[in-house]
Design a protein around this nucleic acid. Structure first.
Length: 481
RNA sequence: GCGGGUGUAACUCAGUUGGUAGAGUGUUUGCUUCCCAAGCAAAAUGUCGCGAGUUCGAAUCUCGUCACCCGCUCCA
């Protein structure tokens, strides 16, 4: 048996095709022509996604005595998003070049310009531009101010050298909708652009209800929505996506230690729990930090289309809780009863993209190899995430094997997702299961009827082992641990 | 959003100078009773992405639009 090497650009096409053909992922509302960057999880996809979320939930909440979960609402009081900074910073100022038809972020153009001045040793010049730039945010019309600065400094596009600029326009990355029957501005609410704020605003509720002492964590899995300017790469960047994240509240000054511990733990989760190959994972340290962070690392995965982020581990300081204290007028301090210290906790966040992880697992698992001289497609999924754990296959339909296999299927179904298949040759049925990543095929043959044994066929090696039929569930359970 | 490409069966794709659609794979049923996509015989599945226009007639030509892919860009 040997693996064949796959060209990266082909893999995505094959994945998309396989995902649809076998019921992992379908385009959303496909019969109407679909909807940009929206996808549905099919029968196998929803099962597999559920497995991923359950593994995450177990490892992040149940295994930790000091981490509890919540499930906050998607729509929240709009002031939450002012406090979090999303109203301000999720409005990206964009500018277009009329000649080259390219679009840029206006703030990035200016920042690049300042950097370039510094590189050229024009520090005074850079400082002057920097000062003007920083004043833009406070201007009455920030976008006009940005445009004026780009115009005054004659800033050109870094890639094309062109500078035929349009006005700076604002793109709001938050989805808006109206609460209440009357659509006026007073009823505007947002679909949350991140799940984190649902945790921060519930800080005291959860802490008191669960009698938690710092350090402790609050975890959540849920949908978030971003009106991305650039979408694409299948389910990698969707406008509606699911986050699995945990906010860990610590005493100020201890965040670096907690940060390192979480970095280690989260990395181990991918390699040990999910079985992702370590060589496919990469650490990336943020040089440019978001407005809330003092330290940030991403775990990136080698997708067929490039190395991209699947999880962010960010030290968020006390930014969020402080801001909520400021905007809500409620005290967000924690009181340590032992030492009588009062402080607003610092936060270490681990935030994973569930759909991205799904795609990472799928693309990591996809392989083509050769069994007995025949090519096959096989998803080498970890048994823990595989949507179907075992298939029960009668060697033949007749002669009592079908009935015996069906009976075994019913027994196994008590423990985990299992399929029965008696259509077409045994070889074909093995290949069907290979393609959806089923780790074990249980075959009921002539010998099964005589002595009550079955064969277990292993997906990755195609090798078989004969075991007692009554031990099948226990055998598979042991292999999945 | 911009530039480039693609869109025909569930999947991968043919389809000639405009004359209303085919193949392989897959699926279903029957036979074969079989341990790695075997064979035989049947069958089902098509708004040719969508909407206009040109034409006696459009999968084919024109325009618009939607979706996907690649690049720019952004991000979890």
């Amino acid at each position: 048996m040997q693996g064949t090497s796959l060209s990266p650009d082909k893999v995505m096409h094959k994945l998309v095709s396989l995902a649809k053909r076998r019921g992992f992922i379908f385009p959303s509302s496909e019969i109407y022509g679909g909807l940009s960057s929206c996808f549905d999880y099919g029968p196998l996809g929803s099962e597999m996604k559920r497995n991923i979320k359950e593994l995450w939930w177990n490892s992040m909440t149940r295994r930790h005595q000091n981490i509890v979960g919540i499930d906050a609402s998607i729509m929240m009081n709009p002031t939450v998003w002012e406090a979090s900074g999303h109203v301000a910073s999720f409005n990206d100022p964009m500018i277009d070049d009329r000649t080259t038809k390219r679009r840029y972020r206006a703030d990035h153009l200016i920042e690049n310009h300042i950097e370039k001045l510094r590189r050229d040793g024009k520090d005074d010049e850079a400082l002057r531009v920097q000062t003007v730039y920083e004043a833009c945010g406070a201007a009455e019309e920030p976008n006009r101010a940005l445009y004026q600065l780009i115009f005054d400094e004659a800033i050109k596009a870094p890639d094309t050298g062109s500078g035929d600029w349009t006005e700076v326009r604002q793109f709001n990355l938050m989805f808006q909708c109206n609460m209440g029957a009357v659509a006026d501005s007073s009823g505007v609410v947002y679909l949350r652009p991140e799940t984190a704020q649902g945790i921060f605003v519930n800080f005291h509720n959860v802490r008191e209800a669960s009698r938690m002492k710092v350090p402790f964590g609050i975890a959540q899995i849920g949908k978030a929505f971003r009106n991305e300017i650039v979408k694409g790469n299948f389910i990698f960047r969707m406008v509606e996506f699911e986050q699995m994240e945990m906010q860990y509240f610590v005493k100020p000054g201890t965040q670096a230690e907690a940060f390192e511990a979480w970095r280690e733990e989260r990395y181990q989760w991918y390699t040990r729990q999910l079985g992702i190959r370590p060589e496919k994972l990469h650490w990336y340290k943020h040089d440019k930090l978001a407005h809330y962070a003092d330290l940030a690392y991403d775990i990136k995965f080698e997708f067929p289309f490039g190395i991209e982020e699947i999880e962010g581990i960010h030290s968020r300081t006390d930014f969020d809780l402080s801001r909520h204290q400021e905007y809500s007028g409620k005290n967000m301090e924690y009181v340590d009863q032992l030492t009588n210290e009062r402080f607003i906790p610092y936060v270490v966040e681990t935030s994973a993209g569930c759909d991205r992880l799904f795609l990472a697992i799928l693309s990591d698992a996809y392989s083509e190899d050769v069994v007995d001289g025949e090519e096959r497609v096989v998803l080498k999924l970890s048994p823990k995430v595989a949507p179907v754990k075992a298939a029960v296959l009668p060697l033949m339909k007749k002669g009592g094997m079908g009935e015996a296999a069906m009976k075994l299927r019913d027994e196994l179904a008590e423990s985990f997702p299992v399929q029965y298949d008696d259509a077409a040759s045994i070889g074909k049925r093995y290949r069907r299961q290979d393609e959806i990543g089923t780790p074990f095929c249980i075959t009921v043959d002539h010998q099964s009827l005589e002595n009550g044994t079955v064969t277990v066929r292993f997906r990755d090696t195609a090798e078989q082992e004969r075991i007692d039929m009554s031990q099948t569930a226990a055998f598979i359970t042991a292999k999945m641990a």
